[in-house]
């Protein structure tokens, strides 16, 4: 049985419909890429999963129906969202950002600092004064501190320097191999997604148009739907 099962969801922003039938499955321990061009509904899908946008259709997570759950309840079930644009708690220090949301489990402040040593060096710095890459690491660390069963990374490497991107990809690879965490990734970098993800789902104009194992994702398909 899959950990997350999104079936045929539709969602609207006011009068304009954004999703027309998105399907997405993630099994326990699986890393799945959610792909598609800009404005096709990737972030909207994530918002529906995390209870930030009402939808029609069904989303179940770990056997729970996410139907009308408010987002904090969905998060408590084990959804760890790293939102697009990082969004740290700006006025808190790095350490305070991490412990504010902590729930007991494998991930502790110490383990997060092992994963991202820079966060240890910046422990008492106000998070608004961090660089973009460090804020991204903090956002991932904060999500891990809630000890999620599914980590959702929405454009985690967008707009970062290549060397920082590499650091973040390396950390995500460690999460996969060392902890077996299930991950849903939205990213533009096809090369890295191919290296790390087990499966992929592509959406086009609010619909799932391709879904399967990463190995089966041919260049024809990606050229057609993602443009690379």
């Amino acid at each position: 049985m899959s950990l997350l099962s999104v079936s045929n969801i539709e969602a609207t922003y006011g009068a304009s419909q954004a999703l027309f039938g998105v399907d997405l499955q993630i099994a326990e321990g699986e890393v799945v890429a959610l792909m598609g061009r800009n404005g096709m509904g990737k972030t909207t899908t994530v918002k529906c999963i995390c209870g930030m946008l009402p939808f029609a259709g069904s989303i179940t997570f770990g056997g729970h129906d996410l139907g009308r759950l408010p987002s904090h309840r969905a998060a408590r079930l084990g959804l760890g969202l790293v939102p697009e644009g990082r969004r740290c708690f700006a006025s808190l220090t790095v350490y305070e950002n991490l412990i504010a949301a902590a729930r007991p489990g494998y991930w502790s402040h110490q383990r997060v600092v092992e994963l991202f040593p820079r966060l240890g060096e910046r422990r008492n710095q106000i998070s608004a004064s961090l660089s973009g890459g460090e804020q991204q690491m903090l956002a991932i660390g904060r999500a891990l501190m809630t000890n999620p069963t599914l980590l959702i990374l929405d454009e985690a490497t967008e707009g970062l320097a290549p060397i920082i991107k590499q650091e973040i990809w390396a950390a995500i690879a460690r999460l996969k191999t060392e902890t077996g965490l299930s991950i849903l990734m939205i990213d533009k970098s096809l090369k890295e997604l191919r290296a790390i993800c087990d499966g992929a789902t592509i959406i086009e104009r609010g619909r799932t148009v391709w879904s399967g194992e990463m190995a089966a994702l041919t260049n024809d398909v990606t050229e057609r739907y993602v443009g690379v």
């Binding site: 995390c50 930030m52 408010p70 987002s71 904090h72 309840r73 998060a75 408590r76 760890g80 969202l81 939102p83 969004r87 708690f89 504010a100 949301a101 729930r103 904060r142 999500a143 501190m145 809630t146």
Partner: peptide
Amino acid sequence: RVETVGLD
């Protein structure tokens, strides 16, 4: 943002 980390 607080909601997304599971706090009401």
